[in-house]
Structure formats: C-alpha cells, structure tokens
Amino acid sequence: MADIQQLQKLSTQVRRDIVRMVHAVSSGHPGGSLGCTDFLVALYNGVMNHNPKNFTMDGKGEDLFFLSNGHISPVYYSVLARCGYFPVEELKTFRRLNTRLQGHPTTHDHLPGVRIASGSLGQGMSVAIGAALTKKLNKDNSIIYSLHGDGELQEGQIWEAALYASANKVDNYIATIDYNGRQIDGDVENVLSLGNLKAKFEAFGWQVIETEKGNDMASVIEGLAKAKTFIGKGKPIMNIMKTEMGAGVDYMMGTHKWHGSAPNDDQLAKALGQLEETLGDY
C-alpha cells in the first residue's frame, strides 16, 4: 500500500487528467468522475490485487473491478492508465474517432483493464455477481468489486441482483455506491428518492458499511478495509460511500450541473489552478 500522501498526489493528478480530458473534446462527465477519484485511486493502488502489466480477460487469481456507472469513464481511464494498464499518453484520444477510450467503457476495442461494457445503467451488479460465482467455481479466493451511481439504483435490475446476491450468499463481492445525492435532472431526493438506502440494503440481506467521507483518502481506505473484513461471512457487502460530485474543483461542487458538462477554456484554467500537477500531465 502506497502511503496516503502519495495516493493524494495521484488523486490530484487524476483530477487534472479528468478535467483536461473532457475539456479537450467538450464532452464527457467530470462531476461523478471527480467525486469517485479517491475511491478508484485507493482501489487500484493498494486495495486490489491485480496485474496491470499482463491484462487478461479472465483475470484468474486477481481481484476484479466492474464499473457499472460507465459515464464516469474519465476517472476510470486515468486511474487505469496511471497504474500501467495502457500508456498515459492514450488519454488524449478520449472520445475521439478510432479511440479505445470510448465515451463509455467497452471491451470492444480491447482496452486493457476493462472487462465489460457499461453505460446503460443498472447492469454492472449482475455482471459482478456472475464473475463472483465463477471465482467460487474456480476456487479462486479473489474479491470482486463494483461501483454504482446512486441515481443508478433507480434501475430495477439492481434490485433483482441485490436479491439474488444475498439469497445465494455471494460473499466474495464488495459493491460501492457513489452516494453523492445528485443526478442529471437534479437532486436524487427530488428526482426519485432512495429513502433509507442503508435500511433497504440491510432489508435485502446485505452487510452494509458506510464510508462517510468518500473524498478523504484515509476514510476511503478505512472503509474498504472494513468491507474486506466481511468477505466470506455469508453476505454480499455494500459500501455506501458519501462523496461530493465535482470534488476538487470548487465551482463544480454543490450542484448537479457538472454531471455531464465539460469546462470551457477559462473554466479549465480555473480548475487546473486548484489542482497541482503532481505526476506530470499526459
């Protein structure tokens, strides 16, 4: 495990990558990407056992991650590139014709690190459960991780999957919810309230843990460490992680406005002024 300071530096660089990527093509989803940066940086740099230099689709003997809310591809691509799945330089092809870095992640173009297409919401939990079942069949003790948006929980398939995972004791699986309370049309509370999310997943038979500060590296690591202690205990594990959409860029926080909008030149300059270049821009 890298020390907290190093991880924070990486997070700052990843945030720079995110705003630069979406600015360059005037499209993409910076808000959720910035909010999930600390989580993905932690996951891929110390929490997961994985092999970036030798990617295989089957990932035998490795922990696997599935991004269900595929629109936050900028953070996913930056984190994958910066831990060695593919050259950091390739981030400049994001959303451009003939790129492997499609607007939403896909296996179609064989980008190392990606094992399922996502974008149409609500499907990743089922896929993660399937991968977890195969791990069990293969007697592979690795862990399956997934990440979901909170708005995504409005999709019915999520609840089919949630029911299945507890009924069948899929206990080699940790799902995380990016609980930022915002979606395209506004606050989740107003669009379609999730009510008491913790109580809902507990009622569905999950072991629920809460990460109160999803943009604080130490808290994120602590939350994932706690989640891991419940592996193999007969229940799927849900990590409800509170984050701030747009975290790290002041004018992108406190609103849903930056869910799917890219900054202009002035806004980019302002964002970069708040994010120190720590590891070198792509």
Binding site: M57, D58, G59, K60, L64, F66, R115, I116, G122, Q123, G124, M125, S126, V127, A128, I129, G130, A131, A132, L133, T134, K135, L137, N138, D140, G156, Q157, E160, A161, L163, Y164, A167, N168
Partner: peptide, 27 residues
C-alpha cells in the same frame, strides 16, 4: 454446482451470465 436458479428476474440472469464468462465459464 453449475446450475443457477435466478428466479423471475431475466435481466439479472443475462447480466450474471455475462459475468460468468469472465474466468472461462460457458453459460
């Protein structure tokens, strides 16, 4: 051990099947 009853939840079944392929199963 190789049979999965998913209940009346076809969307979940297709997703689980997709996931099962990762690691070499043929669902």
């Amino acid at each position: 051990d190789r049979f999965f009853q998913v209940g009346i939840a076809e969307a979940n079944m297709i997703g689980i099947a997709a996931g099962l392929t990762i690691g070499g199963k043929i669902p």
